[in-house]
Design a protein around this nucleic acid. Structure first.
Length: 624
DNA sequence: CCCCCCCC
């Protein structure tokens, strides 16, 4: 038992030695109540022992759960895989435990090992204070350091006046702007950074962090990630390349505060960022990033610089802007094939409205599009959306954007109140004239009757035409409404039966043991003027039939037993009204030109939108 | 040193 602890480790750490993975015993653990201390989260104060000395430590909040679950109990022996030793007032030190492994549970040990006495900071002649962290690749040291010397107690110079061996030191109590008088190295505001100085330290919150991305071009290849840093004075975008990615990617967490010192500052290109700074920061070999272990509420959270939607009309295309609005409606999820890369990606458009009574279309991509739920008209805030010129003006959420749903900020509450009380019933004008496939029904929808569609020869051009029509389902074809599709999530291609119970997908060039049903439904849609056959793919077809492809497939598979029920599905789908968003295009099939109409979305009639359309029609007739 | 961010 006596060999369990790293004897002498605490003295060595206090002298500034790099003690790797010391094993210490937890003698006491006290919860510092968050509410009482005015902090955001509870903190645990620990008393640790190496068998010779005890010292005070704080548990990093991400490890709080180890205490609350009982995993870390009093008398436990723990290996400090990552920690820092920081000076506090009166030359005292506190160890902050950043990562640990339990070596033996307290319930198994049961006693305090050795007869430790309280450790105090080294005095004059002692080594510098440590701000070091153990390296993950260093060897585990259970043995007491061979170099251990008798601890000298005394009244030396303030520990915090001595830089450590890395040459930097910052008191953890510094504010972002001034720094305490005991700190030799001032933390300076982000807004003061320029390329013309190279020794600086900032204390900033990470407000955004990208995934690691790789690139390969004529100038070489590599990987990078970028992050946004914020303090009271401003913000800056930082990028880490290659080695720096390995060094810092894991450490950086969104929302946390870090000390960052040194790095390369270069002019920012506003085309690629909405971060309000003339410069960007690139990490280099001299860059040091260290987590600030105490949550500092004086370092603010995400900063927006919202532009009203009406303002976007006269903002240049391709600008990066911050926007906030109520999500008035959303389109269905649609898959888009990217021409350049032949990749498929999901997208969804939202219609945002604000109290300038203007609407704009905002496109989400990939997972953000898939996960988005617009029910209940949430407030959407985006930092760093790209303003495109499509259909007038529309917005796109990029990788670097911060996308927030119902953010807890005053402007969001204001807009929600506005929308609930009056905005929802007011007319708003979209600055995105051609909407995504959403159909919408807003002021700029191109409403058509089938008569007009045919009379105006829509779909004859090179590009397909889109229109919205209020129509009624007259008939849906049950024959061939389903096909056996490749079971792989990304592939929906038709499979063929191999005859041995397996299924062949030619697109994947692969045999599968199963398949999934996909719907490909022909529906005859009519309004008072004419009718049109339209093709409905999976999602819209499921919507019109009020059944999933899987359910319908199972009814079909059961044959006669469920034939009646199967047929009923198609009966029930008829004579229901929808607002259809249609795509129409003339296509040549077996040397025969045929007008192909695809239903992009079908939505229940929005009475307000449809009534507005009728009122407009009536006004037009009256003025004619 | 990235900076592509897609589609209608």
């Amino acid at each position: 038992m006596n060999n369990l602890l790293s004897r002498g480790a605490i003295a060595a750490i206090f002298r500034g030695e790099n003690v790797s993975c010391p094993v210490l015993q937890l003698l006491a653990c006290k919860k510092m109540n968050a509410a009482a201390s005015g902090k955001a989260v509870d903190r645990y104060r620990l008393m640790l022992s190496d068998g010779e000395h005890t010292c005070t430590a704080m548990l990093a909040t991400q490890l709080n759960e180890m205490v609350s679950t009982g995993e870390l109990d009093v008398k436990a022996a723990m290996k400090l895989k990552n920690y820092s030793c920081n000076p506090i007032a009166n030359d005292r030190r506190v160890i902050v435990v950043l990562d640990l492994d339990i070596v033996k549970k307290g319930s198994e040990i049961g006693v305090s090992i050795g007869d430790p006495t309280p450790m105090r900071a080294p005095g004059q002649g002692g080594a510098a204070p440590a701000q070091q962290q153990s390296r993950p690749d260093s060897t585990v040291s259970h043995d007491p350091p061979q170099t251990a010397r008798p601890t000298s107690y005394g009244t030396g110079a303030p520990a915090s006046a001595t830089p450590n061996k890395q040459g930097t030191f910052y008191g953890q109590s510094n504010s972002a702007m001034g720094g305490s008088t005991t700190s030799p190295k001032k933390v300076q505001p982000i807004s003061s950074l320029t390329p013309y100085q190279n020794r600086w330290t900032i204390k900033a919150r990470v407000t955004n962090k990208t995934a690691i991305r790789t690139w390969s071009n004529a100038r070489g290849e590599g990987k990078l990630f970028s992050m946004d840093l914020l303090d009271q004075s401003g913000e800056i975008r930082c990028t880490a390349f290659k080695d720096m990615v390995d060094k810092y990617y894991e450490m950086i967490e969104i929302g946390k505060v870090y000390f960052v010192s040194r790095g390369t500052l270069k002019p920012a290109n506003r085309q690629y960022t909405s971060i309000n700074n003339d410069y960007e920061l690139t990490f280099n070999n001299d860059t040091m990033v260290e987590p600030c272990v105490e949550e500092d509420v004086s370092i603010p959270a995400v900063q927006f610089d919202f532009k009203s939607i009406s303002h976007l009309e006269d903002t240049p295309e391709d600008s990066m802007i911050d926007v906030i609005g109520v999500c008035k409606s959303t389109s269905d999820l649609t898959a888009v094939t990217i021409k350049s890369s032949n990749r498929e990606v999901n997208k969804r458009s939202l219609q945002l409205v604000d109290d300038s009574q203007k609407e704009v279309s905002l496109t989400l991509w990939g997972k953000e599009a898939e996960d988005f739920d617009g029910s209940g008209n949430p407030v959407i805030a985006v930092k760093g959306a790209r303003l495109s010129g499509f259909g007038g003006r529309s917005l796109s959420v990029l990788q670097n954007s911060i996308f927030q749903v119902n953010p807890d900020i005053p402007k969001a509450h204001h807009l929600k109140g506005w929308f609930d009380s009056e905005g929802h019933s007011q007319d708003s004008q979209s600055i995105s004239t051609r909407q995504g496939s959403g159909g919408g029904g807003g002021a700029n929808t191109n409403w058509m009757t089938f008569h007009d569609v045919h009379a105006q020869n829509l779909g004859q051009g090179e590009k397909p035409d889109y229109f919205t029509v209020k129509g009624t389902i007259l008939f849906v074809r049950k024959e061939n409404c389903m096909y056996m599709a490749c079971p792989s999530a990304e592939c929906n291609k038709k499979v063929s039966e191999n005859g041995d119970g397996s299924y062949r997908c030619e697109k994947c060039s692969k045999d599968y043991e199963n398949f999934k049903y996909r719907l490909l439904l022909s529906a005859n849609v009519a309004d008072s003027t004419d009718n049109q056959w339209a093709t409905c793919f999976q999602e819209t077809a499921e919507q019109l039939l009020l059944k999933s492809a899987q359910e319908l497939g199972s009814l079909k598979d059961q044959g006669e037993a469920t034939e009646k029920e199967f047929n009923q599905v198609f009966q029930d789908a008829c004579f229901i009204d929808y607002m259809f968003r249609m795509r129409i295009k003339m296509e040549t099939y077996n040397e025969e030109a045929r007008l192909k109409c695809t239903c992009v979305s079908a939505q229940p009639i929005n009475v307000r939108d449809y009534t507005n359309k009728l009122i407009k029609d009536i006004r037009l007739m009256a003025s004619a």
